[in-house]
Simulated scan of single mutants.
Amino acid sequence: MSMEIAKEKAENQTWRDLPLELLISVMTNLEIEDNVRASAVCKPWYEAAVSVRITDQPPWLMYFPMSRNSYEFYNPSNSKRHTKELPKSLAGSKVRYSKDGWLLMCKSISTDFVLFNPFTMDLVVLPDLELWHGYQLVGFSCAPTSSDCVVLIIKDYDPGHVTIRTWSPGETTWTSMQVSSQFLDAKRNYVVFSNGLFYCFNLRNSLAGFDPSLRTWNVLDISPPVCPDHIDDESWYEGKFMVGYKGDVFLICTFGNAEPLVFKLDLTLRVWVKKENIGSLTIFGSINSCESRTYVHEGLLRDSIYFPKLCDNENRCVTYSFDEGRYHPRREHNVNWGKQPSSENIWIEPPENALELI
């Protein structure tokens, strides 16, 4: 081949002529929204984009019957339900937080916390809190099987002070610190661990961050999300959910049967940015646990939020689709919760071998 022909061929090459290996390398580093856009360019780009997409396993829905001596899983991928007995030591306990397939639990008349894996039945008993009643925010960073696990419990022990206690695997006591702060005013457990920080949200729409490695607590100078004119103050303070996804933090605000509002935290601009939709994300929201996924099982909707029930007088799973602009019951997931309070329903991440364990 002459130099002239080779030069002309090189000049006529387009992006679609890139080798498949190079295309795959590029697609691997794209965010999901960009991956979807790139897949529409041409057939080679579509093949490369689809080849690196990972289908996330959706979380399972978990609830406790009124007897509180057992619990039930619901797998939204196949609409099947599975029941297991609680360990006797946990009978009557309530879930306070869920992450990485583990539950942080305690009994209402006790401050003895435990970490429990309802799939493997593994149990980690945390040190006694010495009758430290009145905690308001609780959470943990990751599964206790990791040395990076940090359990966080916060309360306003004295007026004008916030008391923070943490525990990590291998420790025999809680580590405690007290800081001057007027932050806490929380009825729900708004805690998300993201980028090495615990983000905590309160009813006054203030946001604070706790860094477990530096042991620092800061009420962040973040402009609160803007309340729409048609929403009354009481509704604005209730019905919120916080969830993280790959370093991002989202706030979902619900108002009965009205359209939910979604805000994304922008730390650079120090503001909550209202989103018209959530793109390829699917969010699973409940009071004590929120999960987020992309490329979920094809039977589930993207750009949607799944709720165990919208309010206590509902009796089955409800989905809000931003694409359709409406709520609708998921008939294919027709789980009748009866009079079960919505606070008793928890989204939980199942292990890959969940079906073998149940």
Rank of each mutant, 00 (worst) to 15 (best):
S223T: 11
K246Y: 09
Y199C: 06
D248H: 15
N12E: 13
F113V: 00
D148N: 12
P65F: 06
I346K: 01
I32E: 13
H161W: 14
N195I: 08
V179I: 10
T14Q: 13
P144D: 00
F116P: 00
L90Y: 00
L152N: 00
V179P: 06
K99V: 02
P87I: 02
K275R: 14
Y199R: 05
S25Q: 14
W45P: 03
L207M: 12
M27L: 13
N189C: 13
G247P: 05
N315A: 12
L269R: 14
Y320K: 10
D229P: 06
F113E: 00
P169R: 02
D323M: 14
L137W: 02
Q178P: 04
Y295N: 15
I231C: 12
P224I: 04
M62K: 02
A143L: 05
F73M: 04
H297Y: 08
F322G: 06
S286F: 05
R37G: 04
L301R: 09
L281S: 03
S89Y: 01
N195A: 15
A143P: 00
I54Q: 10
S147T: 11
T163R: 08
N69M: 08
E344K: 10
F198R: 02
W174K: 03
D229Q: 15
A208F: 06
Y97I: 02
Y237K: 14
C106L: 01
S110W: 05
D323N: 14
P169I: 03
K155F: 09
C200N: 04
R96F: 05
K88M: 09
L207W: 01
